[in-house]
Amino acid sequence: MKPIEVKNLKKQFKTTEAVKGINFSINQSETLALLGPNGCGKTTTIGMLLGLITPTSGNIFINEEELNYKDHQFLNIMNFASPYVELPKKLTVLENLKVYGRMYLIKNFKEKIDQLIEDLNLKPFLNKRTGELSSGQKNRVSLAKSLINDPKILLLDEPTASLDPDTGDYVRSYLEKYKKENDISILLASHNMDEVTRLSDYVLMMKEGQIIDHGKAKDLIDKHGRENLEQVFLKLVRQKNEH
């Protein structure tokens, strides 16, 4: 069973065609990275997968069931984290986790919260207001929120943006460990090529609403005769612009 399958997905905003009929799927326990320059359609694609944007045409299947934009039940098995979306700043970390635990109707949510506090080392700032935390601390709290419902599918939009290398590494290591232990599928949008190389099983390169290349990070590097994924990215992005 494929957790996510996207068929000929299109989105047109007035005169702008943001996503031009893309196809891809994510296998069980796989991390798929979505790469591309700003404005290439990554956020629109994630928005459509989360039910925030209605596609102009095409289909999205979650666990082989077509996504129904009127029934949000599919969101019970998904979750999302992004540094651009925050938790209420005036609430403490613990209050935020309790609110989201209730919202997702988590059974034994106290145990789940305790486990997340332990795993993500949230205890030192548990009773601090979320708005008073550093970027790294906020990021860990946001990650805890995104794992509160034990999602089968996790969507991450630039999960380590603006983090120092140490905290970034902590988050990546945690994601690796969590994925291994919980058998989840991850869709990762990122501009950090080292992160993508480390975390992803498969990479989609997007540009101007289309998938311009795809494959395993190592295969893409070999295919394009480059030393790393960043060079592949630059080649693909600049190649078409030169035409």
Binding site: H72, L75, N76, S82, Y84, V85, E86
Partner: peptide, 18 residues
């Protein structure tokens, strides 16, 4: 507006809340 100002609104809309 509190949800918009705190940039929390997306978290609400991507939850299974109807």
């Amino acid at each position: 507006l509190e949800e918009i100002w705190s940039r929390n609104i997306i978290n609400l809309f991507v939850s299974p809340l109807k």
